[in-house]
């Protein structure tokens, strides 16, 4: 990690040190295809992005729960398959949630 940091900082320092410095107003203004920038750049964007982020949080947390299950599953098979059925119940809830989200049209971008 330290090594990675050193490489990162190193190339930054090198480029600011070596590069020419001729700032001008035009060069430092916001790029908008050569036209003078118009309005605020923090434009409103579709709320769907926010929704996707929230859904990601939910489903990723659910996905994380699969990992501890996955690692003990192989060993637990020797004592019968109760973990398989337990996971199936959990999965049913997850699929229900997915169907709900899908029916509510949350994932359609247009």
């Amino acid at each position: 990690m330290i090594f990675a940091l050193v490489v990162c900082v190193g190339i930054y320092v090198l480029t600011t040190w070596l590069g020419p410095k001729k700032p001008s107003n035009v060069k430092l203004s916001t790029y908008e295809c050569g036209v003078d920038p118009e309005g605020n750049a923090r434009i409103p964007f579709p709320a769907k992005f926010y929704l996707i982020a929230v859904l990601f949080l939910l489903f990723d947390v659910e996905a994380v729960f699969f990992f501890p299950w996955a690692i003990i599953y192989k060993g637990s098979l020797a004592q019968g398959g109760h973990l398989f059925w337990a996971m199936l119940i959990y999965l049913a809830f997850m699929v229900l949630a997915l169907i709900y989200v899908y029916r509510k049209d949350c994932l359609r971008m247009k």
Partner: peptide, 12 residues
């Protein structure tokens, strides 16, 4: 070439 280029930080 990347190293020797100017590294501007835009004003905004």
């Amino acid at each position: 070439k990347f190293l020797w280029k100017e590294d501007p930080i835009p004003l905004n």
